[in-house]
Every structure is written in structure tokens, then in C-alpha cells.
Design a protein around this nucleic acid. Sequence first.
DNA 1: CATGAATGAGATTTCATTCAT
DNA 2: GATGAATGAAATCTCATTCAT
Lengths: 188, 188, 188, 188
Amino acid sequence: MDKRKKILEAALKLFVALGFHGTPTSKIAQEAGVANGTLFHYFPTKDDLILGLYTDIKIRMTAFVNENAKPEDTFKATMKGQYLASLYWALDHKTEFSFKQQFHNSPFHLLLNQEEIEKQLKPHFDMLRKGIEDKIIKPLPVDYIHTLISSHTFGLNQYLTSNEFSTVKQHQLISDTFELLWDMIKEN
Amino acid sequence: MDKRKKILEAALKLFVALGFHGTPTSKIAQEAGVANGTLFHYFPTKDDLILGLYTDIKIRMTAFVNENAKPEDTFKATMKGQYLASLYWALDHKTEFSFKQQFHNSPFHLLLNQEEIEKQLKPHFDMLRKGIEDKIIKPLPVDYIHTLISSHTFGLNQYLTSNEFSTVKQHQLISDTFELLWDMIKEN
Amino acid sequence: MDKRKKILEAALKLFVALGFHGTPTSKIAQEAGVANGTLFHYFPTKDDLILGLYTDIKIRMTAFVNENAKPEDTFKATMKGQYLASLYWALDHKTEFSFKQQFHNSPFHLLLNQEEIEKQLKPHFDMLRKGIEDKIIKPLPVDYIHTLISSHTFGLNQYLTSNEFSTVKQHQLISDTFELLWDMIKEN
Amino acid sequence: MDKRKKILEAALKLFVALGFHGTPTSKIAQEAGVANGTLFHYFPTKDDLILGLYTDIKIRMTAFVNENAKPEDTFKATMKGQYLASLYWALDHKTEFSFKQQFHNSPFHLLLNQEEIEKQLKPHFDMLRKGIEDKIIKPLPVDYIHTLISSHTFGLNQYLTSNEFSTVKQHQLISDTFELLWDMIKEN
DNA sequence: CATGAATGAGATTTCATTCAT
DNA sequence: GATGAATGAAATCTCATTCAT
């Protein structure tokens, strides 16, 4: 019914499987079950489609994390909540996660509005700064900490994806790994 | 003189700047200063070129690490030696590192021989297993540890690259970050 | 108007003049007055074009023969009717005939569906079988007779084409040659 | 050893399998086990190679027929001798025969020297003319008779090739078919 | 909104031929 | 004679995009 949605779904699937340049718009239209020209009605350009898909995914992920990671009593608990929410989302949306990864490692990420990115990261950075001020975590540059957390998250996700664990085992690993991460950044 | 080498150099430069699909073979040939057909004399296919470049880089990196990271007295020192060698290589070969990253995040990595990969990882895995047996690091699955180290390394490298630190500061950060990593995996 | 038709016409003309491999698709598109890509819109592959052209010609020829060669009172008359229809068609469609010849003498004929061919030949073979049963023609294998008739037809056509006879003379020769053929296969 | 010969053999095999334009000179060189450039040492041009191969085959075939078809007492016997020799050669040299066919049905045949062809056909035409003068065969144009015989021969050969008969059966069929041909052209 | 035929610039690859060794 | 790296024109095919219906 909703052709725009169908196009986004088809694009996601194919981009992840074949890469951005490896996926012709015609194939996306076909997979989506719409005419070639219809795609260009919704997304005037292939770049617009890629960017639109990224935005769409980003919005949905942020909504999920915001909904599931409420502020907790302690700094550690709050941070863990966010960590868990991110990873659970990633586990439930492997294709979307893969797409994000691919997007960031491509020249397309340059098309993103830099200000916009910083605005989105601000709450997270603020939280880290607070942790440092309160001497809970080590006094390292917040973007440095953020990078370490991100790649840590990415690594774990990759590990979970390339093995076939039970849900219980997965959640166990996620929880354990957070402790590893915490060991790394907590003030001794 | 060595046209094959010139082609590889041109390909590396352009692939990193424009992406695999964003770089036409004709441009590579031009940049390398050889005729269009010459490229296909050495690499029958664009895929072959991409794969050949990856292999070439991998070999040179491994050689560098092997040469610079000799076994040390303690487990930690040996591991740090490898860690430093990897990061120093990455810092000195940013384009190559970037290419590797792009390669792994693309559908092309599927073209790699799985056995070959495992064979290359074996010494590293063996070392980790030894550390676990000797109760020096935590008894976690070695592929898990390896994934965490890799993404950690990647994260640090990204951080170093996106900031413009002095060499001294860079080496300081690398050394400090190793300690963070060590905190994470060492047996308490 | 009908671009597909224009492409087929151009392809026929050029293939006969220059051979399959001697004719670039670009030249066909140009001769047809369509864009390069349009050709590939209708025929995804050059092979598809060659095959499509063959099929197109085959259909039109069969239609002509079926329309012009009605069953007659005697076996000989019926057979002559078909013989004449085939040859008249060939004389009126020299380029098409030439193309068919070229096609059969090329590796492309292997792309034809064998079953399809047999299905098309069946009525003809049935007729020959009937003639044998009724002791009108010699009791030879029908595919053998068919091959002889075909090459005979081909030979005559070649002779008519390489000389410049008047229409009257041509029809005379065709008629006479049928008698030669008939002498060859009729039961004595 | 004899590289020229090896090239001709490889060319024959590949041209028949893939067509003239479908066979790259590099593939011929490879199949012949010589370097790419060597081919062009012996045949300055691909066309020269094709023509050279044709000439080579033609010479060998003519030699065979001349050796095996001696003049006999009667016209019919002489003619039959030639007919048999031609067909036996074709059966023993299917690839060569196929090549000749392909050559004649290609634009390359235009490269042949017309005079040369006529000179080669003259003895045959003379024989036919003699047969007509002596009222042994029908008073038809000799090139017409020749065309009919040629395509008849071609048809039979095709039939023999597409079926798998025993040698005895093959020779039987060849002999029988000559009688059919003779019925066709003999003066009643 | 939706379609899909049409476009043409451009991408990858092929290949006959040359020539320094 | 023999080699095979090198060439570059040309061939097939792709694909984002447009537009009349």
C-alpha cells in the first residue's frame, strides 16, 4: 500500500546485500513492486533515497532507545540502560544496523549535516561530562570515550551476529560486556 | 617502471577517496599512468584488482607487525608490543588502513578465502589461549576477545585520525589506551 | 513508431551485411534511429537480439507458408505447394533467408530450444510419413528426406540469387527443380 | 615443434567451436601453446590466418580427392568416384568440413580470389559439360548442376553427422544417395 | 500519483596488433 | 624466430534520470 515505505524496505534489504553502488535503483523499484519512475517521485535522487533511508532508520532507533532507556538512580545504571537499549535494538534490527555501519563507512556520510549530528550527540556527551565532574568515570575527552564505547558496541554486535547464541546467552554476554566496558572507563 | 605497483598505488588512493564503485577503472589507469588495457593485463577484473590490493596491503602490514613486535618477557609486554606495532603501522599508513576498513565493510570481503583468514589468525588466537591458561587474562572466548581488541583498535585509530595531535601526544594516547584495554581483559 | 520493430529491421540488414560479430550494437541502434540503451531495453543481450530476430523471422515465414500452401488433391500437389511457397517467400525475403542461413551455420543455433524445433517440424514429418505409407515416395527416414529437400531448396535459392533471372524464368526454374526433386524421392 | 602448424590446428578447432569473431587470437595462441606475438609472426593479420587456414584445408582436400578419384570407364562411375571421395574426406575431416562451410557463409569468402575459384572449378565444370554433350545428363546450366550437387552433398553430410551410424551404414547411405542424385540429373 | 519506455553518458572489458628484449 | 607486456580503440552493457501518457 504505502509505496514510500515499500521502497525504503526494498532499498534497505538490497543496499545491505549489494552495497550502495552495487544496487541499481531499478532493482529497488522491482523489489518494492513499484514502477521505476515511482521511486523518483518519492526520492528525486538516489542520494536522496540513501539519505532518506538513513534518516528513517536513525529516527526509529532513537525513538526506541529513548523509550527503553529511562534515567536511573545511579550514573552507571543510566549508562547501562542506554547501552542495553542500543544493543537490543541492534540485535532486533540487524539489517538496519548493518546499513548504518555501511553508511558511516561510505562517502555518503559527508552528506549529513554536521550540526545536526552534534546536536544529536549533545545529550550523550553531557551525560559523560557529568560523570567525569562527579569523578565517576575517568577524566578523558568525551569524544574519545564516545568513540571507544561506539566501537566496543560495534565489536560486540559483530561477535553476536557471527555466532548463533540463544537469547539468554546473548543477553548474558551483553550484560557481561558492559561490565568490561565499565571496568575500562570507571574512575578507580 | 613497475606498472603493477603503480596501478595498485593509484587504486588505493582513488578507492579510499571515492569508494570502490565510485572509482572507474579508467581513472585508476590514468592516475597510474598506464593504458586502460594494461590494468586488465595485471588484474583481469575490477574485483581482482580490489582483492589483489587487499592482499598486497595485508601482506605488508603483517610483515611490519612481525618485524616490530618481538616476543617479550611478560605476556602483557608481548601483547602491548603487537598492539603498538599495529597502531603505529595504521598511523603511518592511514590510506591503507582506511582501505582495509572499507573493504571489510563491503560485500567484497565475502570473496576472501575463509580458511586463509583463520590460518592467519591462529598465532594470535594461540597467544590469547595461552594467556587464559596461565590465568593472566579473563577466561573468555578468544574470538570474542579478538573482536573487542580489533574494534577497540579501530576506535582509537579513528579518534586519532579525526583529531590532529602531535606525535608525542599520539603515542601517549596509544599507550594509555592500551592500559584501558588491559584493564578490561586482565584477570583480576 | 514501433522501436522494437525498427531495431529488428536494422539488425537484420546489418547482420546480413556484416555478420553477427561484425555488427556492433551501437551501429544497429544508430541505423534504427534509437538510443543505444533502447536496444538493450528490448533485448537485454546481443544474443537475445539475434535469437529474437530469428524467432521473428521464423514466425513470419511459417505464417506465409501456411497461408499460401493449402492441402491439395494429390500428395505431390500438396508437397509442391509447400515447396513453391517456401521458395517464393525466400525470393521475396532474400535478406531474411540469408539471415536464417547465417544463423544456422553459427554457434548461435545451439541456443535454440530443441523441443521447439521438433514440434515445428512435426507436421512436415507427418506428411512425409504419410507419403511413405501410401507408397508414393521412397521408404527413407523422414529426417533424411527432409535434410535433402532443405539443402536442395537452399541450393536452388543460392543459384537464383547469384544470377539475375526474370521473374518468369525464376518461376520456371523453381517449378522444374521441383520435378528434379520429385524424381529423386518418388517411388518408382 | 612446427608452430605454424600448431597455430593452424588450434585456429581450426576454435573457429569451428566459437566462430571467427568469437575466437580471439590470444585464445588461439594459448591453445597452440605459443606466445601471443608468435601468431602474428606467421600470420600478420587475423584475416590472413583465416584465409591461410582455408587455403591449407582446401589444398589438403583437393589432394585427397585427386588421389582417390581416378577417371573410370563410364561418366557415371567417374562422377561417383568424385562424389565418394568428397564425402569420405568430409566424414574423416568433420571439423575441416565445418570450417569450410562456415567460411563460405561468412563475409570472409569475399576475400578469395574469384579467378582462382573459377580455375579450380573448371575441370569439374568441363566434366559436366562433357556429360551434357554426350547426352548422359540433362542439359542444364553447369553452375546450376554444380550448386545442386554441392548442397546435396552438404545435406547428406549434415545428416550423417547428426546421426551416429556405423561405418558400413554410412557408406551404404552415401552410395544410395548418389543414386538419388543420379536419378535427378541423368538424361532419361 | 503512477507508469515504464526512452535516453545517453559512462563503466567494464575485450582484443588485434606492436615492439623491446 | 619467439616472447609477452603494453597499447588504446572499440564493444557490450548499465543505470540514474526524464517525461509523455
